[in-house]
Write a protein that binds this DNA or RNA. Sequence first.
DNA 1: TATTTGACTGACTTCCCAGTCATTTGTCAA
DNA 2: TTGACAAATGACTGGGAAGTCAGTCAAATA
Lengths: 213, 213
Amino acid sequence: MVGAPPHRRNKREAASEARRQAILDAALDAFVSQGFAAARLDDIVAAAGVAKGTIYLFFRDKQDLFEQVVRGAIGPVFAEMAALAEKTDAPFDVMLAALFEKFQRDILATPKREIPRLILAEGRRFPELAAFYHREVITPGLDLLRRLARRAHQRGELASDALVRQPLLAFAPMLVSLLWTSTFDPIEKLDVPGLLATHREILSAPQARKPTS
Amino acid sequence: MVGAPPHRRNKREAASEARRQAILDAALDAFVSQGFAAARLDDIVAAAGVAKGTIYLFFRDKQDLFEQVVRGAIGPVFAEMAALAEKTDAPFDVMLAALFEKFQRDILATPKREIPRLILAEGRRFPELAAFYHREVITPGLDLLRRLARRAHQRGELASDALVRQPLLAFAPMLVSLLWTSTFDPIEKLDVPGLLATHREILSAPQARKPTS
DNA sequence: TATTTGACTGACTTCCCAGTCATTTGTCAA
DNA sequence: TTGACAAATGACTGGGAAGTCAGTCAAATA
């Protein structure tokens, strides 16, 4: 009986975990809408329905809370997208469409869409967080895209190896959609499906017969 | 003699203008490295070599200072890029190369590179600023790109009208370069020239004979 | 049921920083 | 040279928010 059962050892622990999660949820909201410095713990605490001191039972300080909020929100979604892409064997164009689709449904349409903006905004003051994001999301993401591009190129689905050299170019429009949506949507809505469809259209074209010919 | 001579009416005004500019410079640094909320006026004042109260001779409050910093840093560079592109009559590929070049020299290699990140970071809390940026930079920029794309398409330099429909796709990699450089450069340097060159390569390919054929 | 335990509370302390204003300084006009 | 005036100063204030800790009480235990 050394290892405890994974769920609900007793009432205390269950309630405790619920509190912790409530704090994380409220904190995500607050950090996303106010930024790290301007978010107030008193607001988070009120939204989570706990007392001020409770935060310090779970998190060392405000910064620790921030880091755990961001880390928790990133990992899962990304792993799903990677799994999806790795598993199937569809043509490049189809796979890209599926990824774009999942991206729109699971990220762009949820509060998680704000996370990349938050990391860009606060990355300067949280170098470890930027490093974490780079290590856990960006690098594996680009590696995945590179593998997909290489396979497509070898199969002849992509005429050039441009995306193998710069897989970031396949992702750029998604990032732009994310940031536009987070910032300019109240002013001018972006036609994300149109943007991504046109992007696929460009990528799937028979590129790069030598620039000079 | 109603209109004063444009420069240095007397010692007082010249010194005053110099102080104002010193504050703006110091404030840009501070806001860029700390964000709006965390930047301290005491630091800005110290870096600018003026006293606390001096800020309030020129700016209503911290927010007003922030907005003037950002507005002042954006306008000029962008107008230059637009003028450059509008003036010449070069092929699309060449013009794109020239724009990318100027972008790297005049923005990416200067502190101004931080401005877009700052706007994305703080846009939520400064809706007027986001609107200003959208109106003064983004909209005219996209219009310009659209005109260039349309001309190139009509001339037959671009096989498809993809960029006429979504001019944002021509710009996306520049934005990504900007953000990467601002955030992840200490961790992993981005090969910006390579990225942009590959992007031109993709855009200039003979695209979009109907997806199914 | 009685006792113990420790998770949770929230009023309080402490620090920080935007913004003020009475005082000082330097310039200009007479 | 001097008086008048604006510009600049920086010690100070008020408010706000992060973090603390002695007390409380529901759940676990005997």
